[in-house]
Simulated scan of single mutants.
Amino acid sequence: MSEFVSPSEAALREGARWTLSLHHAPRGGVTGDLLGRGSGSSMEFHDRRPYSPGDDVRHIDWRALARSDEVLVRVHREEVAPRLDLFVDTSSSMATTESKAQRAVDLVAVLARAARAGGYAVRLVGLGDRVERISVEELLGEGLRFASKRPLHDLVAEAGGDARPSSVRVVVSDFLVPADPGRLVQPFARDAGRVVLLQVLSKDDAEPEAHGALRLVDSEHGGIREVVVDRSTLRRYAERLARLQSGLAEAVRRHGGLFLPARSDLELSGALESLARGGLLDC
Rank of each mutant, 00 (worst) to 15 (best):
D204R: 04
L184H: 02
L72H: 08
V30W: 10
A101E: 03
G118N: 08
P165F: 07
R145N: 04
E273R: 15
L111N: 01
R231V: 07
F146V: 01
Q199H: 08
A121H: 08
R253I: 06
R103L: 12
P165C: 06
E239T: 14
L280D: 02
V200L: 07
S8C: 11
G54W: 00
G247A: 06
P151G: 03
S246T: 13
G143W: 02
G126I: 06
D180M: 03
A104V: 11
S166A: 13
K203E: 13
L35K: 05
A114P: 01
E209A: 14
E226L: 14
L281C: 08
E142M: 08
P7W: 07
P261W: 04
A276Q: 13
S93P: 06
S246W: 10
A147W: 10
R277F: 14
L72G: 03
V200N: 00
G257L: 02
G15R: 02
P82C: 10
D205S: 05
V172Q: 02
H221E: 14
A163I: 00
S232W: 12
G278F: 12
G257E: 00
P26N: 04
A189D: 04
G40M: 09
D282Y: 11
R183Y: 11
L266A: 15
D191H: 12
L198Y: 11
L198N: 07
Q186V: 13
A206V: 12
F175G: 02
S68N: 13
V170W: 04
S8G: 11
A101D: 04
L84G: 00
L275K: 02
H153A: 10
D205P: 04
R145I: 05
